[in-house]
Simulated assay, not measured.
Amino acid sequence: MRLVFGLVLMLGLGLAGFAVYMAKSYIQGYQAQLAIERQQRAPNIETVDIYVATRPVKYGEPLDKTAVRLAAFPKATLPAGVFTKPEGLFPMGENTPRTVLRRMEINEPVLAVKVTAPGEDAGITSQLERGMRAFAIKVDVTSGVSGFLRPGDSVDIYWTGNVGAGNVRTAENSTGAVTKLIETGVKLIAVDQVTDTDMTEATIARTVTVSVRPQQVAALAQAQSSGRLSLSLVGSQDDTVAEAIEVDQKRLLGITIEAAKERVVAETCSIRTRRGAEVIVTPIPCTN
């Protein structure tokens, strides 16, 4: 009996060991096949290490080495103006930081358009492109679009003044009080003394600063000294070009030149003087 019991025990242990071996082999094979399938399904994305913000940074804040770190970014969707090396971000050394021009959040790529050159502050000169000049325009609650202007917006500029003196006429033969579009799509770089493009609160500004060419500076200076300038806000996605616009009182009221002449003739006043049988008509200025 003992011999039979021992044989049965050995046979049971052998079968159990074989079952464990088979189960282990099956599981290992399944895991290997699963790993191969996952590897085949995973896209092969090429990445590049670029500098990103390690914390939220605001306009005017210095960007030093503690505010950035390297992080992998997909090469296919790499934005323009990124920094990949420390000598690119801090060419004058880590002790000469850049200044933030646009707010950045955590893990947001640091772009060249969002920071100044090393050692520069976030002043008005950093907003000017090559060949452009800054010019200030006086505004109020009506001419300044009721405080909805922000740095970075684009505006059309209208001039209102009188061109009737000395029988002077414009290109559209308008006389008297005239409103004319003189500049289109002009970029605002500051509202009062604020150049932060991330400002959200409405401000009734007294002046706005625009970025224009030197020839436009002369035109705007002459227009501001000889009349009144008004701004019209252009939509952020609007890429249309405004046509030449000029409106005087006659066009505003729909009065043609011929009707205006007839009205002048009709309003001519005179005095009739009788000398015997003769009547003398003397023209005089019309008064109320």
Rank of each mutant, 00 (worst) to 15 (best):
R263A: 01
E172I: 14
T195D: 02
N167Q: 13
G161K: 03
L188V: 11
V168I: 14
L188Q: 08
S230C: 11
D239M: 12
T179F: 00
L220C: 00
Q237Y: 15
L233N: 00
I245Q: 14
I204G: 11
K250M: 11
R263K: 05
A223L: 05
V210L: 03
S232W: 11
L188C: 07
A244S: 11
K261W: 12
R206S: 15
S211F: 11
T160K: 09
A221K: 04
A218F: 08
L233H: 00
V241Y: 02
D238R: 00
A165F: 01
S236M: 10
R251G: 01
Q222D: 14
D192N: 08
I257Y: 13
Q216P: 03
L181D: 06
E246G: 03
R206H: 13
A171K: 14
V186M: 05
K250Q: 10
T175F: 08
T195F: 02
R213P: 09
T240D: 10
A266M: 05
T160F: 04
G185H: 15
E243K: 02
A260V: 05
L220D: 01
N173Q: 15
E243S: 02
T175V: 11
T175H: 11
D248T: 04
E262P: 07
D198H: 07
D196G: 05
A202N: 11
A177S: 14
M199W: 02
E201G: 08
E201I: 14
E172P: 07
I189F: 02
T203L: 15
A223W: 00
N162D: 14
R263H: 11
E258A: 03
A259R: 12
E201Y: 06
I182F: 12
G164Y: 03
S232P: 01
A171C: 10
T200R: 15
E246H: 04
A190F: 01
D192I: 05
A202H: 12
A218H: 07
D238F: 02
V217G: 04
Q237M: 15
K187S: 13
A177K: 13
V234Y: 07
Q193C: 08
Q215E: 09
T195H: 01
E183T: 15
R228G: 06
E201V: 12
K180W: 06
E172S: 15
R213E: 10
D198C: 06
A190M: 03
V191Y: 02
D198A: 06
S236C: 10
E267Q: 13
T160Y: 04
K261R: 13
S232Y: 07
I257L: 10
